[in-house]
Write a protein that binds this DNA or RNA. Sequence first.
DNA 1: AGGTGTCAAGTATTA
DNA 2: TAATACTTGACACCT
Length: 312
Amino acid sequence: MSHQGSVSHESPSPSLRLGYACVNHALGNEGRSDRTCRLANATPERLEELSQSNLKGLRRVLAWNAQNDFRVFRMSSDLIPFASHPETQWGWREALAAELRQVGHDAHNYGMRLTMHPGQYTVLNSSKPNVVTSAIAELSYHADLMDLMGLPLSSKIILHVGGVYGDKHRAKRQFRESFADLPDNVQSRLVLENDERNYGAEDVIELCSALEVPMIFDDLHHRAYAGEPPSQTLLADILETWDNQVDGRPKLHFSSQRPQARAGAHADSVDAEEFRRFVETLPTTEVDVMLEAKAKENALFDLVRDLIASSR
DNA sequence: AGGTGTCAAGTATTA
DNA sequence: TAATACTTGACACCT
């Protein structure tokens, strides 16, 4: 198993690729792309300054990733602070168009897949209409950002299903109805992820099949929800939701349980043996795996090192 | 410079 | 009723 070797965006490497989320430790402040401010002092000038700074930081991180041959990265949703907030509309789409195109160009040249994962406040199936309205605005921000960057449709926006509200069947129907109201550019990038409490893998497969969107499988969430590792059949069914020609290769989330912590809490690093077993359960290694570990890029370095060491 | 209360937003669980 | 956790601490004000 190796994520190394040259990777071109035209013909993806046949081997598994690893990615990490939002924060790069090696670059420190130079690589920050999630600077923000308080709503109370969010002037258009301040927001543009922060956004420009974040985009610069992101470009440095992408260059660093490419140098280290990491071709999968999750961008911070704070890239453009308050981008979807109704009180802070400052025309970021127009003001940042040139810079966004530049960053997207970098990603393209590096053959790097970029994704995003909006926060827990983005709830499409809420019973409160204003919550749904702001969720749609937030998702539009994500999709517009990716469009302005010129990213391919394999750059996905990952979302959880949301709340249950005491009636999961109803809540699922609400999700499907809200999905139908989404702009096309959101629909074509949205993917759904299983969570650890409300919507298990089976629930999400059902929704994904109905909506014809791919599913992100999160291994740690699944183990917290189901109390056992995924079966080969389950993973095969999940990978079936991906149309590789359109959506790119299937993407999965993997992390290890933080010891002595709540079930589902992310550990600092990834256990190589657990990871190896997980990969062996997959029907193919032609996938991208996002490691959700506190140690960020160092978890990737360590995992690759451990895998190489144990394969000798 | 360092300490710390507070921060856009939702939901479900636990105390 | 309030604190907590999520994917994640950082901002902003105070001394």
